[in-house]
Design a binder for these strands. Structure first.
Lengths: 197, 197
DNA sequence: TTTTATTTTGATCGTTCAATCAGTTTTTAT
DNA sequence: ATAAAAACTGATTGAACGATCAAAATAAAA
């Protein structure tokens, strides 16, 4: 049904989304307006409404775009690895690296997650989509299969997945003076390994 | 300098803050307006401006109020304990319990943290106040002193503190069907103990 | 009681915003 | 070359908001 691919429209939509990401990062969701996004993209305000059904729709599509970027990056690093131990370590390393090198993307994502709402008016950050979140599924899968393959010991994959993802998220507000991302990565992996015993 | 205590004014300020918490939880920061808060508190809009210098000021004071509530609750549970191991376990348990029984407060806090900004226009969630955060100081202190007292093994208290607080925060979006708070508490403590070895 | 200070109201002002749409330009199809 | 469709502009509209303030009500002080 969604075959209505116009290359021009697709390129324009991506341009608008990228402008939205920049504006969100610069001034936050609260101050972000369609006219500021249009200005950043050097287009008219009406054009945004032409390509998106409204501000909510633009924000939802921007969120989808941001999630997909991160997902593709991490999945691409994890898949080639053979053992589940390697997959897990690369998952953590790639997640931290992505956050470090794409800070603007992460901030924009947070701004949307904590302000945007689903069509039922439920905040994204409270919506139970987290379960279906592909990265969560990937991580839980690694942990579970690693147990089956006797690479890991006994633990609840759901809980450990939550802990690992929490540790990754926290890297955003790492006091830069105290610890580098590399140090943090090393220490997190060390701690995680203890939990897998 | 701040001795200007009028009991009437203080009570009114708290009434406004509590109304703000309810509105924030119900409709989120984005949709929260002074008139909606005034309406919830059954007062006129102008009265809010009389007691607070503006919307930002009200939100900042509401954040302070919310942080203080949680801090007092947790610190009250932790302090009576003797060993650092006990203190740590109670810290986790009390944190989870507070989040479970004060969901509205937690949601309001998140709404402000992810939308409010410091006077320098830095988002709270990116401001490096996290270090100075009293609960963080408390937790890091427990871990550090527990090491000194040979109750715990070798690890970086800063990293472990981040991991533990991340796990606590994540409880907000725990899939209720999959796991109870008690289960989660038990499993988190089990995992944390492994990390302290 | 009278005066003064504090507290409260509610209407109003200027601003910002999302959305709309009539009209223009550009692209595509015939 | 012509017609039709798609892409785009920018001004406008109406709603919501934060802030302000003159005036009213209440409380405190004299």
């Amino acid at each position: 049904m969604e075959n209505k691919h116009s290359l021009i429209a697709d390129a324009r939509r991506e341009q608008i989304i990228k402008a939205a990401i920049v504006v969100l990062t610069e001034i936050g969701y609260l101050s972000t307006s369609l006219s500021k996004i249009a200005n950043k993209a050097n287009i008219s305000t009406g054009l945004i409404s032409y390509h998106f059904s409204g501000k909510e729709d633009l924000m939802r599509n921007t969120l989808i775009y941001l999630v997909e970027q991160e997902r593709a990056f991490i999945k691409g690093k994890v898949e080639p690895k053979q053992t589940y131990m390697e997959k897990l370590m690369v998952f953590i390393e790639a997640s931290l690296a992505y956050q470090g090198t794409n800070r603007a993307y992460n901030i924009a994502l947070l701004e949307i997650v904590f302000n945007g709402r689903t069509p039922d008016n439920v905040p994204y950050y409270l919506a139970e989509i987290n379960d279906e979140d592909e990265l969560n599924v990937l991580l839980k899968g690694i942990l579970y299969k690693g147990q089956e393959a006797k690479e890991f010991g006994d633990f609840d994959p759901i809980v450990i997945a939550i802990v690992i993802r929490g540790a990754i998220s926290a890297s955003l507000s790492l006091p830069k003076t105290e610890m580098s991302l590399e140090d943090y990565n090393e220490k997190i992996i060390k701690s995680v390994l203890k939990m897998l015993k």
